[in-house]
Design a protein around this nucleic acid. Structure first.
Length: 547
RNA sequence: GCGCCAGUAGCUCAGUUGGAUAGAGCGUCGGUCUACGAAACCGAAGGUCACAGGUUCGAAUCCUGUCUGGCGCACCA
């Protein structure tokens, strides 16, 4: 038996009862099985009667009564329920027995991995691209948010059984490389940055380092290439330190070098999707839902950024991925229509392409926003942030809000190692449990293990609440993965920690009296500890044994 | 002007295939350490879910319109 079975069994029983009332016909959408808002309303609750009222032509409360009779038969025989009530507009509320809770806990304790049960029935090959920040400077906090998010989404997708690769697209071609080279060259000559150039302190350091390698300011190409190479090295180091693994770095130059841009252009041309106007080559993206057509080759003969990107996305599809997820900054959201259109024009499935738009992150200190601008060089780099508040707090504060909303990262809050800081709150719960388990190793019950299945003492409300919370984990992971919403995992782990702390206040664990009580509470502690660790693991955050 | 995102407690935000009296953290006020970690717990105050219509047994959630804020609307990347 696995952890989800306790919930799935109940859900199945409700669906079964609903079907019985409709002579075997299934109800669409399927009835819910939720936790009601208040404990007086039972352990679990279903809206099945309201859904059935229409088709059956009966009022919801009457239908609910019939459902209750069905369920009392099916669940009652197994001794799973204390009682069933009909309430409100027609909710069917289930009050579960201690026997059900003991079995649920045994199932939790018995499965070595809380996530074992979440596998999807439709695994996909997915490529997640991000943060793909320009290699003309170090990663800043915005890139860090893209990286943290992309990485958490990858972990979620892998947890539910998808086959995922992570890729970083390197813009190492085009005009910006020249600008970057000029900026480095200017520094070598002791000059300020050129107009629209890069002026950060790191450019000076780069200039020094590259000069020492014997490359002079006049060698523009070598300057640009080497500069980007070195920046990318730094990016890799930062990402590594941040716990973000990238499987492949895809080079824009390489896309050109392999002739993929030409072949993409040829394919678009052959499909009749391009035309010439004003000396430029245009892609008719409006045929595929874009607002206006886009230029592929400028009148000066140079391709646009879009052209390489189209070739790149086509390349990704050709590599056999079922789904492409691009993690993009909010300032790129105008871009997704073009890519979709281009994919369609190339004959691909535009729905295979999915853009996750990340909103901005503002670093706040003392109520004021710290300014960020790569051009002036006055920005908070991800490295600086990691030095300041550490990997765990950084990841937490970049993930705990929906990616669609802007987030203010309050340095003082993130730095504080106190109860104010939610990441420590969750980690503290984990460390506290670890401490209890260490203490229990000496006791007979702790050494014996087991799940307390022989327990006859009734369960406390705090124990039941925690068990229900832990049972929720697989659904939470599935939902978070499906919606690409790691912030839900932050909220969930906070809730587990809160439920644990309440349980801990009410229930003595080590040395608890009563047959099997200590054993069952230790089993609950182990399950809670493992769940917190796995939840934090999905976020790339550590779960310390001590703090 | 057009598009995307947002508008929920004093602040920061959760809350989507439509469910019961809308939640959490911070802040404020008041309690709890001679038992396993007080980095914790318990309680209180705090809401026209931006506004107006609509859909139905039921709307923060779906539809339409309006207002406000952020971002984007290149032969830049």
């Amino acid at each position: 038996m696995t952890a989800t079975d306790s919930i799935s069994e109940l859900r199945g029983a409700v669906e079964e009862a609903a079907r019985a009332l409709r002579d075997g016909e299934r109800t669409e959408p399927p009835p819910t099985l939720d936790r009601p808002p208040k404990p007086e309303l039972g352990d679990y609750s279903s809206n099945a009667a309201m859904l059935l009222a229409g088709p059956l032509g009966d009022n919801p409360r009457a239908v609910a009564e019939r459902l209750r009779a069905e369920l009392e038969g099916s669940l009652g025989d197994g001794g799973d329920i204390d009682r069933i009530e009909v309430a409100g507009p027609g909710f069917v509320n289930l009050f579960l027995s201690d026997a059900w809770y003991r079995r649920a806990l045994a199932a939790l304790a018995g499965s070595g991995d809380a996530l074992a049960a979440v596998a999807t029935d439709a695994p996909e090959r997915v490529l997640v691209e991000g943060p793909s920040a320009n290699p003309t400077g170090p990663l800043h906090v915005g890139g860090g948010r893209l990286a943290a998010y992309g990485d958490a989404v990858v972990r979620l997708l892998e947890a539910v059984g998808h086959e995922v690769e992570r890729e970083y697209y390197v813009n190492d071609a085009g005009a910006q490389v020249g600008t970057f080279a000029d900026s480095i060259g200017a520094r070598m000559k002791g000059e300020g940055p050129p107009e629209n150039g890069y002026g950060g302190e790191y450019v000076s350091e780069l200039a020094e380092r590259i000069a020492a390698e014997g490359i002079g300011p006049e060698d523009r190409e070598a300057l640009g290439l080497r500069g980007i190479e070195l920046m990318l090295e730094g990016v890799r180091e930062t990402l590594g330190r941040f716990g973000v693994g990238i499987d492949t770095f895809a080079s824009e130059r390489a896309i050109y070098a392999r002739g993929e841009v030409e072949s993409a252009l040829a394919r678009l041309d052959a499909g009749g999707h391009t035309y010439r106007s004003d000396d430029a080559l245009w892609l008719r993206t409006t045929s595929f839902g874009d607002d206006k057509d886009r230029v592929l080759i400028k009148s000066d003969g140079e391709p646009t950024y879009l052209t390489a990107d189209v070739a790149y996305h086509w390349d990704k599809l050709q590599r056999g991925f079922d789904r492409l997820i691009d993690v993009l900054g909010a300032d790129h959201h105008g871009y997704v229509g073009r890519i979709r259109a281009a994919i369609a024009a190339l004959g691909g499935d535009p729905d295979a392409f999915e853009a996750q738009i990340m909103n901005l992150v503002h670093v706040v200190e003392g109520g004021e926003r710290v300014q960020m601008s790569k051009r002036s060089g006055d920005f908070v780099s991800l490295d600086d942030l990691l030095d300041d508040i550490g990997v765990d707090a950084t990841r937490w504060f970049m993930l705990w809000r929906s990616h669609e909303t802007t987030v203010d990262l309050d340095l003082e809050l993130a730095r504080s190692q106190s109860s104010d800081n939610p990441v420590y709150y969750v980690q503290y719960a984990h460390a506290r449990i670890a401490s209890i388990l260490r203490k229990a190793e000496g006791s007979a019950a702790g050494a014996a293990g087991g799940d307390g299945g022989d327990r006859i003492v009734p369960l406390e409300p705090g124990e039941k609440a925690l068990i229900k919370r832990l049972l929720q984990f697989p659904d939470e992971v599935r939902e978070s993965a499906a919606r690409r919403a790691p912030h839900r995992i932050c909220a969930y782990s906070t809730a587990v920690a809160a439920d644990f702390h309440s349980f801990y206040r009410d229930c003595q664990v080590v040395g608890a009296e009563g047959e099997g009580v200590e054993r069952s509470r230790l089993a609950l502690c182990r399950a809670a500890k493992r769940t917190i660790a796995e939840a934090l693991g999905l976020l790339g955050i550590s779960a310390p044994e001590r703090m």
